[in-house]
Design a protein around this nucleic acid. Sequence first.
DNA 1: TTGGGAATAT
DNA 2: TATATTCCCA
Length: 289
Amino acid sequence: MTLETHFPLVFREMLRMREEVSNWFSKWEEELPSPEELIPLSQSLITPDLAIAFDLRSPNHRNDGNSGQPLPQTTPPQANSSAEFAADSNGDEPARTLKRPRLVWTPQLHKRFVDAVAHLGIKNAVPKTIMQLMSVDGLTRENVASHLQKYRLYLKRMQSGGGGGGGGNVGESDLLFASSPVPAHFLHPTGRQSSEHFMPSFVPIAALQHHQQQPPQFLHRQISAANFTSPASNGKAMEQSLFLARQSQQQPVLIRPSSLHLHSQLANNAEDFESGAKTVLTLFPSRDD
DNA sequence: TTGGGAATAT
DNA sequence: TATATTCCCA
């Protein structure tokens, strides 16, 4: 039993709404301010110490050219903890007492999440494996578990007639979820593996890159190492945004990476992983599918 | 240890 | 109030 065959009208309406929301997001992204416009804001929010910790120098000048380097991930925990938060001007506070940066799920990040879930199949999609598949440094199992929790509620709402024209409210939160297509088999799992119906736009590399769970990476490290690469290369269309807010500062910090193309090095790993498979590898895929 | 739901915090 | 984090239990 599928929604499409039994409720064709509802199904079509859902598709239409999905398209609509997708377009909305597309427009929304295009209307985002340019990086240049954001710089003053960022500079006012990021202290010099933070800038160092984030490895931020100037908007137009990015680091050494080590963009292809693997992340520094094997720092011993103790060195890690102090180093990560030393930026908070007083280096005395033990890291464990500080709160983790608040992650905001952007449409790009959510898309990656959906891709991972689709790739795993709804049955095997559990926080840990999703996290590994997403391969986003700094993303924790808790982050994923929390998002998965919400996503399941969203799916449940969709199944129980929430998505149609009939009265179901699409709340604000649903806009994020609707920004990425929900693979059809999510809504009516048939029990069999159905990842064949859905081709994720990326390939799992987490398991290759860093074998097992590393000590929790912090988001600023992720940003500096993975996102702030080769700034001057691409046009505005490539711009994506990643929002971070530090609870300790109670000030949301908007950080806008210049370019989000992943490094060819990772693509090589991807080839190792799935030999012969055609793969597209992006960290935060730009708006196309 | 992990997953999932509920409570809590921002 | 919405949404992410943390807690708690199976």
